[in-house]
Simulated scan of single mutants.
Amino acid sequence: MNNTVKFGIVGTGAIARYHAAAIKLHSEAELVAVCGITIEKAEEFAEGDTSIRLYDDYAKMLELAEIDVICVCTPSGMHGDGVVLAAHAGKHVLCEKPLEVTAERMTAMIRACRSRNVKLGCVFQRRLMPAMLHTRQALLDGKIGRPVMGNAYLKYYRSPEYYQSGGWRGTRALDGGGALMNQGVHGVDLLQYMMGDVASVFAYCPTLARDIEVEDTAVITLKFKSGALGVIQGATSVYPGQETRFELHGDRGTIEFGDEGFKQWKFMDSDEPAPVFEDTLGFGSTSSSAQQLPVAGHYYYINDMVEVVRTGREPHVNGEEARKSVDLILAAYESARTGKEIELA
Rank of each mutant, 00 (worst) to 15 (best):
V276L: 12
E40Q: 11
I52S: 00
S237Y: 03
C205L: 11
V309S: 12
Y193P: 02
H134C: 13
A322Y: 08
H88W: 11
I342Y: 03
A103G: 05
K340V: 00
S237G: 06
R105P: 00
G297H: 13
F267N: 09
Y18L: 13
E247S: 13
G241R: 11
M194P: 03
P273A: 10
I342R: 09
G170D: 10
L94C: 07
E343K: 14
T254G: 03
T171E: 11
A103L: 07
L281D: 04
I220G: 05
I67C: 03
E28H: 13
S51F: 00
E256D: 07
H88P: 01
M78H: 05
M149E: 11
G90I: 12
A173E: 15
I67W: 09
G261H: 09
E63T: 09
Y156T: 02
Y153Q: 02
R53M: 14
M132W: 14
Q292D: 13
Y333P: 06
T207P: 05
A86P: 06
Y301A: 01
D56G: 01
S325E: 10
H249T: 09
L31T: 02
D49T: 04
T135G: 06
R111S: 03
L293T: 09
G90R: 12
C73L: 04
M1P: 08
F277N: 09
T286I: 04
D269N: 15
L330I: 15
T254L: 15
T236Q: 07
T207F: 00
A20H: 05
K41W: 05
